[in-house]
Write a protein that binds this DNA or RNA. Structure first.
Lengths: 195, 195
DNA sequence: TTTACAACCGACCCCTTGGTCGGTTACAAT
DNA sequence: ATTGTAACCGACCAAGGGGTCGGTTGTAAA
């Protein structure tokens, strides 16, 4: 057979990129098709409709990529330092275009959660996973932290601030803002320690 | 004449609401027209095209509303307390639907800044205004604050976190998350004081 | 009363979109 | 060599988008 899995993957990858750049609704199937050099028939052979294609991108591309990013940052000996390094690495290593496009997953969440139930549930699930990941690992080193910490709350705050900084730099199309806000986020993190 | 200004305003108001709910691109002129009970001719009499209508909503509705919200919160005797109260009021007083729709201005920024230069410039301008507003008022009470504070950076962080919390609750469609993150943001603010 | 024009109307246009469907092609199994 | 079928093709479709334009209506000024 012609390599079906490869075709599927190509569609998925290109879709992920197009959706990152233009958003889900604004991404047209024809633009994906053109980039893949694949026919519409092929696309609809692998995915029943656009929405399901979106779900697949969310589940098979964005979510794994996202968790693979956060996991090592937080499962390290000192998660506070791990997070700071992760954030700073992101602000130095990422290209300007990447930063300015925003976090692909966050973008998709913003756009789709209110519109489509299928997306909403997937998002909710992933959010809880991420929150637990962070909260548990902070709790693990709670001896080094201030006594009054609500771990779940702090975990949500970290994610919110990170996405906020990504959003800010996206809406101003200016990477420097990202760095600035990340700096302050790191200071907040350091302040969680008891001293 | 039939009250032209009133017609224009009605179009603007309804557009603002539709755009808040569905985003700029996803908002169709026909849906606005239907709600206003105004003809397409009337709309195109007052606005040259959809983009300009968007600009008008941004400038005449969102921006003033936005600044009117933040200004009093920060120009009060104690801006730290002012901000905390503002945030908490927002989390208690706002309806669930409102919260879950996200900040209208932030939504529009996310959606349009990368796509359209006209929006980008307006957004940039407004962002700087807001940042200065906050930074100046924090600096005003710098005697009460920690000595190591970078006011611009902190101001951006506050806005980013606020929008982040709004985004988080939007993407999970859950108001409680908003309250949680706002709580942590207030704690961060209190921590800016020197003690 | 006439006139001039801003304000408004809505049928129409073209374009793009997601989605369909009858047909073709490559390959594995028999 | 034959056959069955997964994989793929692309012309076609209806719906909805933004935008146009010739025409009508209300009203203030002359």
């Amino acid at each position: 057979m012609r390599d079906a899995e490869q075709t599927r993957q190509k569609i998925l990858d290109m879709s992920a990129d197009e959706i990152h750049k233009h958003g889900f609704t604004a991404t047209s199937l024809s633009s994906i098709l053109k980039r893949c050099k694949v026919s519409k028939g092929a696309l609809y052979h692998h995915f029943p409709n656009k929405m399901e294609l979106g779900y697949a991108v969310f589940e098979e591309i964005y979510t794994p990529m996202f968790l693979a990013m956060w996991k090592p940052a937080v499962e390290v000996d000192d998660p506070i330092e791990g997070l700071c390094q992760f954030f700073k690495l992101m602000s130095t290593e990422s290209s300007c275009e990447e930063i300015v496009c925003g976090c692909p997953l966050n973008n998709l969440c913003q756009e789709m959660s209110a519109i489509d139930e299928g997306f909403r549930l997937r998002i909710l699930n992933m959010q809880q996973q991420l929150n637990q990941l962070i909260a548990i690992n902070l709790q693990r080193v709670s001896a080094q932290l201030r006594p009054d910490i609500d771990f779940t709350q702090v975990a949500y705050f970290i994610v919110a601030s990170f996405h906020g900084s990504s959003s800010l730099s996206k809406s101003s199309q200016n990477k420097d803002l990202f760095t600035k806000v990340i700096n302050e986020l790191c200071q907040y993190l350091e302040n969680l320690r008891n001293n």
